[in-house]
Design a protein around this nucleic acid. Sequence first.
RNA 1: GGCCCGGUAGCUCAGCUGAAUAGAGCACAAACCUUCUAAGUUUGGGGUCAUUGGUUUGAAUCCAAUCCGGGUCACCA
Length: 592
Amino acid sequence: MSIVSEIKPLIVKELKNLYGMDFLEEDLTINTTKPEFEGDYTLVLFSFVKKIKKSPEQLGIEMGEALVKAHPDIFTAFNVIKGFLNLTVSDTYWFNFLQSHFSDSRFGHKPANGKKVIVEYSSPNTNKPLHLGHLRNNFLGWSVAQILKACGYDIIKSCIVNDRGIHICKSMIAWQLFANGATPQSTHTKGDHFVGEYYVKFNDAYKKQVEELVAGGMKKEEAEKDAPIMKRTQQMLFDWEAGKPEVMELWKKMNNWVYEGFDVTYKRIGSDFEKMYYESETYLPGKKFVDEGLKQGVFFKKEDGSVWIDLTDEGLDEKLVLRKDGTSVYITQDLGLAQQKYEDFNYDQSIYVIADEQNYHMKVLKLILQKLGKPYADGIFHLIYGMVELPSGRMKSREGTVVDADEMIEEMVDVARKKTEELGKVKDFTESELKELYDIIALGALKFFLLRVDPKKRMIFNPEESIDFHGFTGPFIQYTHARIKSILRKQSAVGSRQLAVNCLLKLEKSLIIALEQYPAIIEQAVAEHNPSVIAIYIFNLAKSFNTFYTEHSVMNAESEEKKQLRLQLSEMTAHVIASGMGLLGIRVPERM
RNA sequence: GGCCCGGUAGCUCAGCUGAAUAGAGCACAAACCUUCUAAGUUUGGGGUCAUUGGUUUGAAUCCAAUCCGGGUCACCA
């Protein structure tokens, strides 16, 4: 139990004792005391003033005296400034806390709670390689899954691969037209990049044809439909749906190239999935919903045979769920997939990591399932994240103006190597140890960069400014961890006996206070589905340790007792850093 | 146009379930390595919290309106 949740009932009880009034724990505002004031935690008094009819000062003094008297094991002192009651928590309390947790590498984790959550993330298209936006999605999804796991949830990570459709056919047509039988092997190109090149080639050719038609006097809209390459693509989609063997063969061949490429990238960034869904297998079953919805009267059929749902009561529009030709649309597929997932896993909650451009779509999806009375509908949660943009605007695969994921990672590895070589601290590392270290640092920097901001906010990435290794960054925290490990290596075992140290120094105490908050931070991150909460916390913890580190020596402490205390502090800080970074999918090195 | 999201230091962002003088990082200026890793630490300048009004003992935070930016409202996915 955290100190704050331990203190709250005590305060409620004292308020009752002193004034005979009942307050709820939720009504209490308790913050860490600002550094410029004396104390550890602060109770804000204003909210009681009205009911109790005493001045904040008097109220604070009475409460302070009562709390210190009733709980001398927790509170040792207090002061009241304006409407704030600053409470000093006893050093003994902090010693006991440190004592019982410093060696626990799973501090802050919770036991299994029996709830099952499926987290869908990544969800790539098989016509182009992953870019920076996909990385944000992948890191977010993986991290949220990991954070939920730490809180005791049973997690299934899933991925829906958009492996069919007109966009896939575009790459296929372009390959037929321009490749002359070239393959990833023959061109020594990573499979996903290879296919992505043809997607760009398609769009170049298409654009050119449209321009020519427009120059010949055709209207733009018409030209876009009439361009020969587009007509061929539509024919191919039709052939694909009919299962034409040579089209299916090409489709499989090119998708496999892409999967080979994706596998390499996923492995590199640490994305993994318990369950893969493929749109080519799930795009049809959604149609069952249409009959069901019609029978229930949730859907209605228009004269042309198309099927709709009326959401005007909810402030939305009418939404199409089945085309007049009987083929399914995007939302139909998603209805089918939601059902499929529930049948497969019987989940309590289903999280979708999808960019904010699909907010409306996800709202509609959930609403339809609710109207259909599906038991799993309320458990659907859209984890919204903002798009990653360039200073010049949105990234567009079609136009090739994207920051490629693989290239980005390679650049970060390069920077990591250069910086490491400049500093020359790991000259005794083997080649493979160095390679691993560069990977740890490069991906640490990249993941931290993308996870440290609130997922909901869109972010602008400037490729000209490479990601920093100083300040609020992954490497800064990794470095702090390596420093601590360097100290701990000098000591065979950290003693765990009760220490007779009589007082905590300011920097020691603020470190302990920070460590104590870790479990509450994880809870907050879960509640908000927000890894940036962890990133910010771990950064502040690392900063706090660094300040402590420069001010006080561990190995040459004033006394043996102090040395042991600081070793425990160091060990616990290392554990929390490693644990918190682990929740972000970031590894921490022993040395760097 | 309807709906949704955002606007905080030169830049990137915290703070947004109201609470003490609005915080970090980067950049800029300076100081600190015979002492546990200087990828570090310390100090400094830098703000009309988009604007206006309202609620409140108290507003960056809540409410309303306005301005600016983005998304979405497809028989695309």
